[in-house]
Design a protein around this nucleic acid. Structure first.
Lengths: 344, 344
DNA sequence: CTGAAAGCGCTAACAG
DNA sequence: CTGTTAGCGCTTTCAG
């Protein structure tokens, strides 16, 4: 193993000089600098990152705290992760995986053991028990998702309120006057999951603003519940012509269940989903959707953390604007009328 | 920050003693041991992992080299990754992510910088250019997938030959005498991807052994190619009653394309896929499949690496036996005949 | 602008 | 069984 001392000897300078060339923490004459660089190259020196004089200095490693709960959207997570590693490498950093079920103790372990310079915490909820700890920790962190109060933290998230609103606006623009909302299982709302609550709030507020009738229902993750929910919705609101779905499990069944309730998609009922793009594309008919921007979140999260590590103070909350991709499930009104005329 | 020296002082022993209590590398009297433990607890000591006396000693970190190529099966990778982190934690280790596009240089960087104790290398191919490097590296590694020659390495992989054979056996047992095989795009075979070649070899050998007619075709990743392939297959082998598909992209289209070629699934043609379970379940009809065991691979890979780090010498190649899950696409012959009779 | 030297927290001989 | 001591590779004072 070639050490900094070997380089120093080879270049005819002191070890500390080599160190300074590496870190750039003090000015070195162009001459010595190039001589040292040369020696580094010819000897094939690689800094022994693990041991940087211990006390000060960074490790170049970011802890990525993954949620391992069941029912996570695996492809979405993987997208986030790969975007995060790629971005981290651009900042000359690496990612250390940590499971969320290590929970608070795992965070503390990693923080104190000086393994990492900071944390990326995925899937943060409204009143996440890791949040108080993160505030105390001396290491900076960036949360994906945001708790009830983001004070003193840095968070990135999709703007779920705007997402809910965007769905309504899209549908209202198409002329729909009565819109339903199928949300997550009630347990998710009880857990006070940020994305679920915020989306529904955004949906309701936008419905008020646009003066359209709105009915929201929480729905469980099984086929029967979805069927019951759609039937109830159709019975209670016969005039309902559009549905916003924020429940990935329900997506696969929704078209069939609506049909079983006497409604065709998109002929009788237009559907907008809030879900990963690929999921929306797989449905038949493909669903208009507001996408969950995994890659952007990963990129921004790492960039924000890197900024913090450089002593900058990014804003506490970065909300990504929702983007809606229009697909077959929300056709133009003219088209719908023609179809309706054809079929009835 | 509370150091080992603080603990030593508090417990009235030498720093080294504390160190030995921690590592268990020499026997300590029960008395001192408990006294030290007590001090550790009350002072809230956490080992400063980053700096373990530099020279010897492990970092407790495993490098996980991910392939970031397009077209990877994201949910499967995520399954592998989560199984790997979980298992790693059981060995008191963490996982450091590395992208494969860092390639050989990335491996070298991580190895020399002493960031990691060893590597997990995903998605290894027959003649992978990282393999020679891995042999040279002083750090141990475990490969997922296996190169042409596994000498001097440790590999875990699904036994793809057995998988191909298992498909044939299942179909032959059901009475099928003429079986087709739809493989990966030809580019994949040219790249000499292990799983593709081995599966096909297993398929062909088993077909010989069972005395059934077999025809294999490579097929590109688009709808048109799949359609052309099925049509060609049906025309050339009108008596073909079963199909093995080892191509994830093709799966979604296969049923429709067979129908377009005048064959119903499973009435006229039974189908077995080699793919992640969840994919097979999503198809309609759900496909009988040999699963890609992401979790098992993750678990075994980490266990093997941990064993190597403990100085053990695991066998160079661990092949997981294929498991076939039967679904609607390979019904009993009796049922098929009844259906065939019904429909024509 | 550069060198010498003193640690950093921990481990591993070396001595009892 | 335990304490003393000498490093590990690198950073960072402190002196030029």
């Amino acid at each position: 193993m070639v050490t900094i001392a070997d380089v120093a000897r080879h270049a005819g300078v002191a070890p500390s000089t080599v160190s300074y060339v590496l870190t750039g923490k003090r000015s070195i004459s162009a001459d010595t600098k190039s001589r040292v660089r040369e020696s580094i190259r010819t000897l094939g020196y690689q800094p022994h990152v693990t041991d940087r004089g211990t006390s000060s200095s960074r490790t170049g490693v970011i802890g990525l705290v993954l949620p391992l709960r069941a029912g996570m959207h695996l492809p979405g997570m993987m997208r986030f992760v790969t975007a995060a590693v790629t971005t981290a490498r651009r900042h000359d950093m690496d990612l250390l995986l940590m499971t969320a079920d290590d929970g608070a103790s795992g965070l503390r372990r990693a923080a104190n053991s000086a393994q990492v310079d900071g944390f990326l915490v995925m899937d943060v909820e409204m009143d996440d028990d890791r949040v108080p700890l993160l505030r105390q920790l001396s290491k900076p962190s960036v949360l994906i998702g945001h708790p009830a109060t983001a004070r003193g933290l840095t968070c990135v998230d999709l703007d779920f309120e705007a997402a809910g609103a965007k769905c309504v606006d899209h549908l209202a623009d198409l002329g729909h006057r009565s819109i339903g909302f199928l949300g997550a299982p009630s347990a998710v709302y009880r857990r006070s999951t940020g994305s679920a609550h915020r989306t529904m709030n955004g949906f309701s507020a936008a419905a008020m603003r646009r003066g359209v009738a709105a009915t929201a229902l929480s729905v469980e993750d099984d086929h029967d519940s979805v069927l019951r929910a759609t039937k109830a919705l159709v019975r209670a609101h016969p005039s309902m012509t559009a549905l916003v779905v924020h429940n990935e499990a329900a997506l696969g069944w929704i078209t069939a269940c609506l049909r079983a309730s006497g409604r065709q998609v998109p002929g009788d009922v237009a559907v907008v989903a809030i879900c990963p793009d690929e999921l929306a594309e797989q449905m038949s008919p493909p669903l208009t959707s507001v996408r969950l921007p995994a890659e952007e979140l990963g990129r921004h999260a790492v960039d924000l953390l890197a900024a913090k590590l450089d002593g900058k103070q990014p804003p506490p909350l970065m909300l990504l604007p929702p983007r809606l991709s229009r697909r077959a499930s929300t056709p133009d009104p003219a088209l719908v009328h023609r179809r309706a005329a054809q079929s009835g």
